[in-house]
């Protein structure tokens, strides 16, 4: 991705606290249904997978289809259980992966 995604995750949380995560990626989410000015079909290119992991284990994920708006925005909750580096990844149709890591300290 040309522009890095935004991730809002608190830096600290109390054990057991439910924290809301907001993620915003920068992507055209080309549906494959559109045509260019010459009438040629523009090939589909979307972000199709999103995941949030901690220590390799998936906490939350999403499978996206072309009906997800450009610049995909996904919000969800996680239960603060362990401190660590939370890894957010987006994978497009071509297998290109964009990763953002953010630390959250749980006390």
């Amino acid at each position: 991705m040309a522009n890095q995604p935004r991730v809002k995750l608190p830096k600290t949380a109390k054990s057991g606290e439910l924290v809301q995560v907001k993620t915003l990626a920068s992507h055209d989410m080309e549906t494959g249904n559109r045509k260019d000015k010459e009438g040629k079909a523009i090939p589909r290119l979307i972000l199709k997978k999103f995941s949030c992991t901690l220590g390799g284990a998936e906490i939350f994920g999403a499978d996206m289809h072309p009906a997800v708006s450009a610049n995909p925005y996904i919000t969800f909750y996680i239960k603060a259980e362990k401190s660590g580096s939370y890894v957010f990844t987006w994978t497009d149709d071509n297998g290109e992966v964009t990763t953002v890591s953010q630390d959250m300290a749980v006390s």
Binding site: L18, F60, A62, A67, I74, I78
Partner: peptide, 26 residues
């Protein structure tokens, strides 16, 4: 829509709360 699928969210007990959001094309 041209095809009905929009998005599938995959949750785990560590998600803590089943409360998800996104933006879609209709």
């Amino acid at each position: 829509n041209p095809s009905p699928e929009v998005i599938s969210f995959n949750l785990t007990p560590s998600t803590g709360k089943a409360d998800v959001g996104t933006r879609m094309r209709l």
